[in-house]
């Protein structure tokens, strides 16, 4: 989208034979970048800028929807957010924040040098911005792969142990018992850990489970609601990165995020104090940071195009609109991350 916008704004000379028919041939002859339907470069520049700001407004509302989802879910499950936040690496998030801020500075500097027709300096700044974007994505890649390895993912996979033949852990069996007993005779199925979808279980159970399966999307397992009474008796204040204790790590670092990250896959499933619906935190986390990451990638493409055009010598103090507009885009990407960082990584 922004690509198109940048192209729009580029105002490359439009090959209209009648471009001089309007009695403004003088302006158009003086400024080869001036599109035929604009009268002056200032009008063209202002239009492009307003167009870009409107586009940024749509970006803000686009992310706004996700921020609302975040707010609603956090309002509903505060314990989930304060618990799950500790699985994120503040160090990596903090480094990424700084990387983006610095790349914003280099982008603003690129505009600064473009405005002064300093081509080489502008190109250096653009390359630096590109490097910042790449660094951000590399760090993000490591964060994502690590979490996926740990099964810290969205949806039902969050609860699926990596080893499907794993026996039911004694403690959780006990916890599960009351609910299973309430089922009346269904407790024998409680150990059927390998069964993934209700539809694949035995016939009788399949029938019993039909309404539940209907609730779940596409036959996937469903996870509902609040913790057991035993679990909810644990006060939120005492909830924390319990993986520290359970996974055997003795590192009592003040912030447990890194230590948890060292745990073996699905360590979180052994945490008896994990509140229900933690997968929702990761759903929102992946949705928001993923969409943001896509915007970073788009930004890299657009900056690449700027570098290409800059090397071709398209930009000077008379015409630098595309650099300015891509700069605006890049800053909004930074700006959104400025909100994502505390909302996900810095929940006390």
């Amino acid at each position: 989208m922004s690509t198109v916008d940048a192209n729009q704004a580029s105002g490359a000379p439009v090959p209209h034979s009648h471009a001089v028919d309007h009695g403004h041939g003088g302006e158009h002859a003086k400024h080869p970048f001036l599109a035929h339907h604009f009268e002056t470069p200032a009008q063209q520049f202002d239009s492009s800028k307003l167009g870009m700001w409107l586009f940024l407004a749509t970006e803000v509302l686009f992310f706004g929807g996700l921020f609302v989802a975040y707010a609603v879910l956090r309002n509903r499950f505060p314990e989930v957010f304060s618990y799950a936040s500790h699985y994120l690496s503040t160090t990596m998030g903090g480094i990424n924040t700084c990387v983006l801020i610095v790349s914003s500075l280099t982008m603003a500097s690129a505009v600064y040098f473009a405005q002064r027709s300093r081509k080489r300096a502008m190109l250096v700044c653009l390359w630096l911005t590109m490097a910042g974007a790449a660094a951000f994505m590399v760090i993000k890649y490591f964060e994502y792969t690590h979490k996926i390895h740990e099964h810290l993912v969205w949806g039902s996979t969050f609860y699926v142990p990596p080893d499907h033949e794993i026996a039911v852990i004694e403690g959780s069996h006990e916890i599960a018992a009351p609910a299973a007993v309430a089922q009346g005779g269904a407790s024998s199925h409680a150990t059927a850990a390998t069964s993934h979808a209700a539809s694949t279980s035995t016939d009788s159970v399949g029938e019993v489970l039909a309404p539940a399966a209907m609730l779940a999307a596409g036959g996937s397992p469903s996870f509902v609601g609040a913790p057991l009474t035993e679990l909810s008796a644990v006060k939120p204040a005492s909830r924390g990165p319990l993986g520290v204790a359970l996974s055997g790590s003795t590192d009592a670092a003040p912030h447990g995020s890194e230590t948890i990250a060292e745990g073996h896959p699905s360590a979180h499933l052994e945490d008896a104090t994990m509140p229900a619906n933690v997968h929702l935190f990761f759903a929102v986390y992946y949705a928001m940071t993923g969409l943001h990451g896509v915007h970073v990638l788009v930004g890299m493409v657009v900056i690449g195009m700027l570098i290409y055009r800059g090397m071709r010598g398209d930009f000077n103090s008379n015409f630098y609109t595309p650099v300015d507009l891509v700069g605006l885009y890049w800053h909004i990407v930074d700006l959104i991350w400025i909100f994502l960082f505390p909302l996900f990584y810095l929940i006390h």
Binding site: G65, L66, A69, V72, L73, R76, F77, W154, G155, S156, A212, L215, A216, A217, G218, S220, S222, F223, V224, G225, A276, N277, H279, L280, A283, V284, Y286, A287
Partner: peptide
């Protein structure tokens, strides 16, 4: 979000997964 919900079942809108 609806497409993501339908394909990878993230659960934000799914009441059976705590969504709304």
């Amino acid at each position: 979000l609806l497409i993501i919900e339908r394909t990878v079942n993230i659960g934000i809108f799914n009441p059976s997964m705590g969504g709304d």
